[in-house]
């Protein structure tokens, strides 16, 4: 509890977040680079999809982080609403653009993957459509945050919105799936999911872990910026400015 309390202190957080961010960034970038390299270059060619499948080494980690990011925002949202913890508010505000970027990356890579698979850039496939709506959910949080002037109110409003959103994510996903199976029919080929070879799976796991660490790093870095802006009138923040 004491630890939590100390961590709740904003200057303390600002001080320790820098080494933590670096500790996340270095292995994150290395793992992601190893995973992506292993996937793009080393992994054997897929007997069904040829080389096109290789984009999965970016697509899957991004899609995972788009969900992970939104869920973590909602958890932080509950903490912010119930315990009024300022750091939770700052986290969810800072995570939104990072999560939105990964969601966008997942969409773009999905479209690139779709081109050789389906012959067209965009297919109203259930998973891609859900991902698109998830992007809109992210953009809603970001837009709401930008629209409300008072940072406290903005963060609390975003907290509530992300909690409402996260309850809706599975419902949206299920409804899109329902819609897709009902009206698209079996014309859309789904990706077969045969058991992956170890030398294909291993780089993917590395890339996923690396991307996740990078998510932490970028979010933490954004948190530091948000924190400084919100506390710009306080004594400790002014000292940070004068030291810089």
């Amino acid at each position: 509890m004491l630890w939590l309390h100390r961590f709740g202190s904003l200057p303390y957080f600002y001080r320790v977040s820098r080494p933590i961010a670096i500790a996340l960034a270095v292995p994150g970038v290395l793992l992601a680079a190893y995973g992506v390299y292993g996937g793009l270059v080393n992994a054997p060619v897929d007997y069904q999809q040829g080389d096109a499948f290789r984009i999965l080494y970016i697509h899957v980690p991004s899609a995972w982080l788009s969900l992970f990011g939104y869920t973590s925002m909602a958890i932080a949202g509950v903490v912010a609403l119930v315990w009024r913890l300022k750091l939770a508010e700052i986290f969810l505000v800072a995570a939104a653009p990072v999560g939105a970027s990964f969601t966008f990356l997942a969409l773009v890579t999905g479209a690139i993957w779709g081109k050789p698979m389906w012959g067209t850039w965009w297919v109203w496939d259930a998973r891609l459509t859900s991902e698109l709506i998830l992007l809109f959910l992210y953009l809603g949080v970001i837009a709401l945050h930008n629209a409300i002037e008072s940072p406290r109110t903005a963060a609390r409003a975003c907290a509530l919105l992300s909690v409402v959103g996260v309850i809706n994510v599975p419902i949206i996903h299920y409804s899109v799936e329902w819609w897709n199976t009902l009206h698209q029919g079996p014309t859309v080929t789904r990706f077969g999911r045969p058991a992956m070879e170890m030398d294909m799976l291993w780089p993917l796991l590395c890339a996923a872990l690396g991307f996740t660490l990078m998510f932490g790093w970028l979010t933490l870095w954004n948190m530091r910026a948000q924190l400084l802006w919100r506390e710009r009138r306080s004594r400790w923040a002014k000292k940070v400015f004068s030291d810089a």
């Binding site: 809603g140 837009a143 919105l161 809706n168 409804s175 819609w179």
Partner: peptide, 14 residues
């Protein structure tokens, strides 16, 4: 509209 239309997706679909 940006906030609520994504949440309206299931209602629209069903």
């Amino acid at each position: 509209s940006l906030l609520i239309f994504p949440l309206y997706v299931p209602i629209l679909i069903f």
